[in-house]
């Protein structure tokens, strides 16, 4: 499922809002999530999961083309931990397929 399919699926399930409104809403939600993470804020959605940042230590990397070593700074990367309901539903999908 892509973002536009997600927008269509939501629009099909409710009658008050136009496709355009749903599109703006979905984009706003994703933007809010990106904004939160890029300012170091966690996201907590019960039954879905939580997003947080994990720190990666600085390390010595290599340029794969030249073999030169490069200093890589420490950095934060986004991390997702699925919540209980999501874990259970996805795992139930396994036994059905």
């Amino acid at each position: 499922m892509t973002k536009s399919e997600l927008i269509e699926a939501i629009a099909a399930k409710q009658t008050q809002l136009s496709l355009k409104d749903v599109e703006l809403a979905v984009k706003s939600v994703l933007e809010q999530m990106s904004d939160a993470l890029s300012s170091g804020e966690r996201i907590e959605i019960r039954g879905f999961g939580s997003f947080s940042l994990h720190y990666r230590e600085p390390r010595l990397g290599r340029n794969p083309k030249t073999g030169d070593s490069v200093d890589l700074n420490g950095k934060y990367v986004p991390h997702f931990k699925p919540g209980k309901e999501l874990r259970e539903r996805v795992n139930k999908g396994l036994s059905l397929s």
Binding site: M1, T2, L6, I10, G47, F48, L86, R89
Partner: peptide, 18 residues
């Protein structure tokens, strides 16, 4: 609905690309 549609897709073994 945003989160439910993502859960439903994953439940039916379909990945979600945003």
């Amino acid at each position: 609905m945003f989160f439910e549609e993502i859960r439903a897709s994953l439940e039916s073994n379909e990945q979600v690309k945003l």
